[in-house]
Computed example of a mutant assay.
Amino acid sequence: MCMNVAIIGGSGFVGSKLIDKLLEGKDIASIVNIDKNKSVKHVSLWREGNVLDIETLTKLLSGVDIVILLAAEHRDDVSPTSLYYDVNVQGMHHTLAAMEANSIKRLIFTSSVAVYGLDKDNPGETFPVDPFNHYGISKWQAEQVLQEWYVNHGDWNINIVRPTVIFGEGNRGNVFNLLKQIASGKFMMIGAGNNQKSMSYVGNVVAFIQFMMEEVKSGYNVYNYVDKPDFTTNDLVYHTGKILGKNIPSVKIPYAIGMFGGYCFDLLAFVTRRKLSISSVRVKKFCAVTKYDSTKAMSSGFLPPFSMEEGLRRMLNEEFNT
């Protein structure tokens, strides 16, 4: 059966890659990308809309069979912090209401492993939640909205993906900034560098979303998405140097000094009212163990099309080796 697909928040990094992937398939009748930001790559599929505008959202979801909700406030430095809850939580309420008005009963929602918090012991989907920042708290609250909704909508199919940090060609997030520093040869390690960093290559994430669209059509399901093996920060430095053919210096700064520097940048950002690329939160996240279990996803029948090293190679060659 061919599906009419709506992607809410599809103009960004993951959304653009997902549209590329779905356009390769044979079971898609139509795709609409509903986003407040105009799509650069898929202009003809873009319709201006916002999860905070329920009236427009309801109109744009007419005739749709399945909704993929990617829209979110996710940066570390969103201000005011109420935006996390407006977009991530109230936006979920609006999405569900707009879907119900159009008799749409299938939803794929990208949440986050941020719901588990930092430095946890390889959490799986049943692990207790303990978010440490507004992003993680708001994502968990959005999931709670879905849990409550499903109680009275048991005939719906709700699939939640909790990806870890996503990297890939065209990404301009934390992984890109880290790899850019490593590739420049001016990288300084904070801490010993032995902390494991679960990551996900965008080509695999969008393939998993397509897999759920085609294969997971009933029930309420939650999946972590993590590509294996988990690299340490030292592994990232090693593979980056190997792929780019560079000798990366191994200067290391003690964690306490790194955190002190992060707090100094926090103060500078406050005084100047500017958003800076370094902060105490980012130093803490950089040094934390962020290892997550993905056994459930990898036992579902899904086979990632790319290895971790291949994903890293594709990104590095595209961004830094041209």
Rank of each mutant, 00 (worst) to 15 (best):
residue 223 Y to F: 15
residue 201 Y to P: 09
residue 134 H to D: 15
residue 222 V to W: 11
residue 140 W to D: 11
residue 219 G to W: 07
residue 111 S to N: 04
residue 182 I to H: 10
residue 194 N to G: 13
residue 166 I to M: 09
residue 227 D to R: 08
residue 197 K to N: 04
residue 127 F to M: 00
residue 216 V to E: 05
residue 148 E to H: 13
residue 113 V to I: 10
residue 189 M to C: 14
residue 215 E to P: 01
residue 146 L to N: 08
residue 170 G to V: 09
residue 127 F to E: 04
residue 211 F to G: 12
residue 229 P to C: 01
residue 191 G to D: 12
residue 182 I to Y: 09
residue 216 V to T: 11
residue 165 V to G: 10
residue 120 K to G: 02
residue 153 H to I: 01
residue 192 A to S: 15
residue 151 V to W: 07
residue 209 I to N: 02
residue 164 T to G: 11
residue 188 M to V: 13
residue 112 S to N: 02
residue 160 I to H: 03
residue 113 V to F: 12
residue 208 F to I: 01
residue 177 N to Y: 11
residue 142 A to V: 06
residue 216 V to L: 15
residue 169 E to M: 12
residue 213 M to H: 06
residue 208 F to S: 04
residue 175 V to W: 05
residue 159 N to E: 14
residue 216 V to W: 06
residue 141 Q to P: 03
residue 146 L to H: 10
residue 174 N to E: 07
residue 160 I to E: 03
residue 195 N to Y: 04
residue 209 I to P: 01
residue 214 E to R: 12
residue 153 H to T: 00
residue 164 T to Y: 03
residue 125 E to R: 01
residue 117 G to C: 06
residue 219 G to S: 06
residue 211 F to R: 12
residue 176 F to N: 14
residue 179 L to H: 07
residue 127 F to K: 02
residue 112 S to P: 00
residue 175 V to M: 11
residue 142 A to S: 14
residue 170 G to H: 08
residue 222 V to H: 03
residue 145 V to D: 06
residue 214 E to M: 10
residue 227 D to H: 11
residue 140 W to T: 04
residue 170 G to N: 05
residue 184 S to Q: 05
residue 125 E to Y: 13
residue 187 F to Q: 04
residue 208 F to A: 09
